[in-house]
Write a protein that binds this DNA or RNA. Structure first.
Lengths: 136, 136
DNA sequence: CAATTTAGTTCAGCATACTGAAATATCCAC
DNA sequence: GTGGATATTTCAGTATGCTGAACTAAATTG
């Protein structure tokens, strides 16, 4: 999965951080540059580069905020990200079809729970790193 | 999953490439530096750095090859990598216990097939990039 | 045992992406 | 309106990791 993720990034010319940023953008619908900076833990200056690369890759757009003209609203380009995953989506859909509805329910439940576990473990690892004796 | 992977890397002071290298080492049991270079697509010079970081993180060891003293045998330190995943392993084991053996079989089958799909899609993405109009 | 090949490391040069600070534009309070 | 706060960009400086070439050591060939 990680290898696939890296291949996607290389194919689009975006970094791992950029992809996480895109996930944030898609999750929130749209965000400002400042919100994005806070969300992914970068300085505003770095976010400019992140958004530049996403825009260049055709994955996101910068649009003016009509209510506050200092702000930019960053949105994902509908479909653009999906295109990259078209092959994966198709293959996964075919795989899913090979299971009965009951089996699919079990798998879906397990996947949801696994996501929860990973989220929790990521949080623990990240917090562990914030406080104790520095490693490296 | 990708976020967890990144957190592990940050926690250990190793890069994403380093972790892929470690996966290769563990998969093969042990490899020489040259084999590792070919496997992960880096020059021998870069592999020195990769192995340096893995050794510093306590994840791998450099050992002399008794048969060919130019060579180094690189092995994973047993358990060291597992320690980092102790929390994840425990949580996943507990999750697994919540399913019946039949359900576990379905999940295992689906996971195996999903890995196959991801491998295949990664290969396609990687190859696509090798030939056609350059993207960036 | 000399000449060539192979394994790995070291090092200089280069690319990339981040930080922090300065600059620009806009909003808001008085 | 004027003054201060806020949003984003630009830019110089820095860190990291890669490539390619030179170097050392050991194996292989004739």
């Amino acid at each position: 999965m990680v290898a696939f993720h890296e291949a996607v990034g290389a194919s689009l010319g975006v970094t791992a951080v950029d992809q996480r940023a895109l996930a944030v953008i898609m999750g929130a619908g749209s965000v400002s540059a400042g919100e994005l900076a806070r969300e992914i833990g970068l300085t505003p200056g770095a976010v400019t580069g992140v958004v530049d690369r996403l825009v260049r890759a055709g994955l996101a757009r910068r649009e003016p905020d009509l209510e506050d003209r200092r702000r930019l609203v960053i949105t994902a380009v509908p479909g653009a990200f999906g295109d990259t995953f078209a092959g994966l989506s198709k293959a996964m859909a075919e795989l899913t079809d090979r299971y009965t509805p009951a089996e699919q329910a079990v798998i879906a439940d397990w996947v949801a729970n696994t996501i929860g576990v990973l989220r929790e473990q990521t949080r623990i690892l990240t917090e562990e790193r914030a406080s104790p004796p520095s490693r490296r």
